[in-house]
Simulated assay, not measured.
Amino acid sequence: MFEVLVFVYENYWRGDACPESPQLGRKLSAVGFDADEIEEALRWLDGLHQASHSPDLALTAPILPVEAIAFPATDSLRIYSVAEQDHLGAECLGFVSFLETAGVLAPMMREIVLDRAMAANGSPVTLDDLKIIILMVYWSFGEEPDALVLDELCDDASDRVAH
């Protein structure tokens, strides 16, 4: 699925420039992606679209009315559930915390990142996959992270040499 998401990110500069699911599915199939990967990616992208265009509805529990949910304040403390800790792992949660502390991942965007990471297969989610998810969240809002953040999200840490 993540290869499909990278293709979409590279070929459609913003979420609103991306074609509707049926047309995108045909394009991805013509490029040569597997039908199962395409279906999984389209489902994931639909969830991302819902979360980024109506975050109140996408992130609320079905038993609570929308008006009962408040988005986190910038100075709030996020406590991760056991399921989130298990699915994301310490490395991914540490990276999310790093981006938040650096001031480049707002609390609302963090919640969408976590929602989409929880919807991704793989347990725990790898750091490389989380970086793709973060890029896709920025993409869905039509934003591009600043150059240093983009470098951090796209850089392959395995090529780094320790000093």
Rank of each mutant, 00 (worst) to 15 (best):
M1Y: 05
M1K: 09
M1Q: 13
E3R: 10
V4Y: 06
F7G: 00
F7C: 06
E10Q: 15
N11Q: 10
Y12T: 09
Y12V: 07
W13N: 12
D16A: 06
A17L: 13
C18V: 05
G25W: 01
L28G: 03
G32P: 02
E39D: 12
L42N: 04
W44E: 03
L45S: 06
D46G: 04
L48M: 14
Q50W: 13
A51K: 10
H53L: 04
D56R: 15
L64F: 15
V66M: 11
V66N: 03
A68T: 03
A70N: 12
F71K: 01
F71P: 01
D75W: 06
D75Y: 10
L77R: 15
L77N: 10
R78K: 09
R78P: 02
Y80N: 07
V82G: 11
V82R: 15
E84A: 14
Q85N: 02
Q85P: 01
D86P: 00
D86G: 12
L88Q: 03
A90E: 15
G94W: 13
S97N: 09
T101Q: 10
A102T: 00
G103H: 05
V104K: 01
A106Q: 06
M108I: 01
M109D: 08
R110P: 00
R110A: 05
I112M: 14
V113L: 10
D115I: 02
M118E: 14
M118L: 15
A120P: 11
G122P: 15
G122H: 13
S123M: 13
S123P: 04
T126N: 11
V137W: 06
W139K: 06
F141Q: 14
G142Y: 12
G142M: 06
E143Y: 12
E143V: 05
E144P: 01
E144L: 10
L148E: 04
L150Y: 11
D151A: 02
C154R: 15
A157L: 14
S158R: 05
S158P: 00
A162Q: 13
